[in-house]
Design a protein around this nucleic acid. Sequence first.
DNA 1: CACGAGGGTTGGAACGATCAAGCGGGGAGG
DNA 2: CCTCCCCGCTTGATCGTTCCAACCCTCGTG
Lengths: 342, 342
Amino acid sequence: MTIRYPVAPPTLADVAERAGVSRQTVSNAINNPDLLRADTLTRVQEAIDELGYSPNRAARNLRTRASHLIGLKFSPAQEGTANAAMDRFVHSLVETAGGAGYHILLFAVGEEDDEALRGYDDLLRSTAVDAFIVTDTYLGNPQATWLRQRRAPFVAFGRPWDDDAADHPWVDVDGAAGVDLATTHLLDRGHERIAWIGWRKDSRIGEDRRSGWTRAMHGRHLSTTGLASRTEDTVSSGREASAVLLDEASPSAFVCASDTLAMGVLHTLRDRGLQPGQDISVVGFDDSQVAQVIQPGLTSVRQPLEEVAVEVVRALEGLLGHPPVVSPGVLLTPTLAVRETG
Amino acid sequence: MTIRYPVAPPTLADVAERAGVSRQTVSNAINNPDLLRADTLTRVQEAIDELGYSPNRAARNLRTRASHLIGLKFSPAQEGTANAAMDRFVHSLVETAGGAGYHILLFAVGEEDDEALRGYDDLLRSTAVDAFIVTDTYLGNPQATWLRQRRAPFVAFGRPWDDDAADHPWVDVDGAAGVDLATTHLLDRGHERIAWIGWRKDSRIGEDRRSGWTRAMHGRHLSTTGLASRTEDTVSSGREASAVLLDEASPSAFVCASDTLAMGVLHTLRDRGLQPGQDISVVGFDDSQVAQVIQPGLTSVRQPLEEVAVEVVRALEGLLGHPPVVSPGVLLTPTLAVRETG
DNA sequence: CACGAGGGTTGGAACGATCAAGCGGGGAGG
DNA sequence: CCTCCCCGCTTGATCGTTCCAACCCTCGTG
C-alpha cells in the first residue's frame, strides 16, 4: 500500500511572491499588522488565504527561541481511589492555554527523583517547552526546588507552603475554606459532634483542610477532642478509621479529606445498617465522579479547577512576557456540592 | 523582581570545538554512533556530558521536517457518568510514546465540526505535529474522514466500523468478546435469565457489545427476547430501564454496556431492597474508579488500555518510518474484573 | 530647492541542526 | 604501480522564519 504525503506546505516566500511583496512584509502582516498600509495588508491576507498558509512552527521556534509549549507531567488517577482532579484540570488547562496560544505537552518521568529531574531537564535543555506546570507541590518537592535553582519558568498548582525561598507564581485552592464550608453546612443542619478523617500529619494539604474543620467547630465553641483521625488515603483506611470513631466518639457526621476516605465511611455505615444522610452525615472532598453517581449522592467539596486553569495560564503569560512578570500567589475558594449524604 | 534566565544552552558547535571535531561528527555521535571510531565517540560523549548538551529541538525539527509530537484531542470524562477511560489511556500513551521518542501534544477544539477540523488543520499545516491519535471513531466521524482525505498520518483508537474507504491503522478492544466473557461468567454461576442494558441502536460500539451478550446466550440455547433494553448512557436511564426489565422480564442478572448504566441498575436494586450479587447480579463495562470503590464492588469488563497504547505507538512508528508502513488493524481482548456484584 | 523625518519595504544574516558532497589515507585488487 | 573503494571525518549549503540595518519614497519644513 502506498502513501502519498501531502505536498510541501507553502512558505512565507510563496505568499510573498503571490502578493508581490517581500518576506518581511508578510511576516509583519502576521505579527505586526499595524505596520502595514491597509491595502497591502488585505492583499497579503488574500494570498495567505488562497494558499492556506500557516507559519512553520519549527522555523519560528528556532528564530524566536520559544516553542509555545507548556510541559505538564501527567499523573493518572490512582486505581482504587476516587481521585479524579487531574482529568478535569487538564481539560480546562488545555482549553484555556489554547486560547492564549499555548499547547500542553505531556510527559512521563521515572519514579526516582533523579530520573524525574532528568525528564524536566531534557525538555528544558532541548528548548522543547517554554515553561512547566507543576502540580504536586508537597513540601520539599524536588522538582519545584530544582526548577527554581535552574531559573526555569514554571507555575505551580499548589502553594509552596512554608518554603520561604519560593518566588514562583502559584495558584491553589483554599482547602481550609472548603472544609470550613462543609463543616458549617453540617453545623447549620444541627450537627454538633462532627468527626474529621484526614491524612497523616506530614501532609500539608491534609493539615490545611483539617484546620478548616477545627476553625468551624471552635467558631461554634464545640470541642474537637477525640473526633479526629489521621490515616492513609485509601477506602479501607477510611472504613477502619470511621468504625473506630463511631465506637469511641459517637459522632453524628463525618467530614473527610477526600472522597476516597468518605467512601470508606459509607462502607462502615453500610456494615452497621446506618443510613447515610439520615442517621449519619458524610461529606467528602473533590466532587469526584464517584460522589456524583453513587446512591445516595455524596456531598463533597468541589475545587474550582476551571478557574485554577485560568489563573495558571494568566501567571504563565506573565512569566513568558517581555519583560517577565512574576504574579503573586492566587488562592481560590471551593464550593460545596450538596447531595443526599449531608 | 528581576528574573535571571539561564545562560544560552550549548550548541552542536560548542561541543564540536571542545571535542576537537566538526559539527557533523557530533551530530553523527548522537544520531549514528556506529559511524564513528570508538575513541572519537567517547571523546565527543565526554564533551557532551561536560557541557550538558541536548540538541535544540526547533533546529532539528526544522531540518528534518518532523516534530516528534503526536496530537491528541483531549476529551475529559463527562460529569455525572462513570466513564474514565481517557485518563488511564492517556497515561499509558504518554509513557509508551515517551519510550519511542515521542511526546503527546494536547489540544482542544470547538464543538462545531468545522471548528474541530480547523483545529486539526492548523496543527498540521504549521507542522506542529507529525501525526494524530483519534479516539472517537463513530461511523462517519468527520475528523477521521477529513484526515484521510488530507493524507495526514493518524492512528485510531476504535475501529472504522463499516467504513470501507478506511485504510488507516487502528487499534480497538473487542467489546463483544468482553461482554461474552461477562455473560459466560454469569452463565457459569447458574444464571439463565440475563438481561442486557445498552445504548441506542445507532451506536456501533453499543451494538458490538450487545452482540457479545446474544452470542453467549444463544451459545447456551437461551432466549434473549424481552431481556434487552437500549437507552442513553446516564445513571437515571439505567435505573429506569432496569426497573422496567425487572417488572416485565424478571431477570436474575444484568449485563450493561457501561459502568454508568450499571450504577443505575444498582440504584434500582437499592430502591427495591434487593442485594446486588446475592439476589441479582450486575456487571458493568470499563472498570472505572466507581466500580472499584463502591460497596459491594462492581464486577466490570476491563479494557487493556496499556496494551492499546503500546499498539497505537507501534502503528505510529510504522506510519512515520521510512518507508511508511500502514499496519493492519489490531483487536485486543478485554478481561473481567470480578467483584461482589457478579 | 535642499533637507530631515518617518512610514513602508527590502535584502542579508542568523537561529542550530542535518543533508550532501568531498577529502585524504590506507588497503585490496588488477 | 595504478586504480578503486571504503572509512572516518570535514566543509558548505539548507530548512523557514524573524531580526537588523539600510533603502526608497513622500511629505512637511526651513
